[in-house]
Design a protein around this nucleic acid. Sequence first.
DNA 1: CTTGGGTCCTGTGCGC
DNA 2: TGCGCACAGGACCCAA
Length: 288
Amino acid sequence: MPELPEVETVRRGLVPVLEGARIVRAQVNRADLRWPFPERMGARLTGATVDRLRRRSKYLLADLDTGETLIVHLGMSGRMIVSGGGAGRDMLAQFHHLHPAPEKHDHVILDTEAGARVTFNDARRFGAMDLAPTATVEAHWLLAGIGPEPLGNAFDEAHLIAAFRGKRSPVKTALLDQRIVAGLGNIYVCEALHRAGISPLRPAGRIAAARVASLVPIIRDVLTEAIEAGGSSLRDYRQADGELGYFQHRFRAYGREGEPCQTPDCQGTIHRKVQSGRSSFYCPVCQR
DNA sequence: CTTGGGTCCTGTGCGC
DNA sequence: TGCGCACAGGACCCAA
C-alpha cells in the first residue's frame, strides 16, 4: 500500500510512541518477511531505546541507542498498529493496558516500557525488516541506490532533466524508478503526470525540458498535500496503520477509470492502461 | 549499460 | 453461497 506520504504519515503516528521509548519486549512470530529477519532480531531490539524515527524513501529507520538502526519496509500491505500506553492513547486501553487480540499476520510485536505496543502486520509479506549499524545505514543494500528525496533540496529541475535524458522507457516507469526519485509509487506517479498534462506512455527522454521541470513542483505538491491530508487525522493513533486517509478522495486520475477528466475545460475521460504490469490511469485528451 | 517481464504472498471483490 | 479469476499501493532478479 504505502508510498512516501503514507510512510511519512505512519512515521508521524509512531514518533510519540517510539521516540525516546525503551523496547522491553520484542516478539518475532516468524523467521522472515520478504527476506529473512536479521540474526537474533528480537534479542537485539530488546532493551534498546529508540533515539529517533526517521524516513528514507518508503523506509522507516529507527535509530537505536545500541548503535544499530532498525530498517522497516511496509511492502504492499504492511501496517503498524499502535495500542496501549502513552499520552494520547485510548483512555480505557491505557488504564487497563489492553491490547487488541492478536490477529493473523501479526509478525512482529514491540512493547515499550511505557506500556505501548506496536504491531507489524503484513498479510502479503512483501515487507522487510533488517538491522544495520546506524553510522553506515545509508549504505545498506536496500538504501544504497535510492535517489534524492522528492521533498528535499537535491531533487530539482536539473536532476530530473538529467535523469530523463536519453531514456526510452515511458515516463511512468522512470518516475517509479527509485534511483531517479525516491518514494513515488503507482498512485502518486499517476496523479503527478495527470496534473502535469504528460502522458504516462511518453518516453521520458522525449519530453521537453520545460515540461520535465514542471514535474518537480507538481510532485512536491502532490506528496505534500497527501501528507497533510494524512496528518490532519493523526490525533487518532489508528492513522498510524498506514491507511490512505482522506487524500484518496482527492485522487484526480488514480482509480477513476471511465470518469470525466477533472482538468478544467477538458472533455476527456480517464482511461486505464496496464504498463509493465501496473495500471496507469490517465486522460488521453489532456495528457500528451 | 538499459529495459521489460516474471515473481514473491494473501486478501478482496466481482461475475457467473 | 460457492467458485474462479483479476487485481492490489513494491521492488528485486534475470534474460535479452
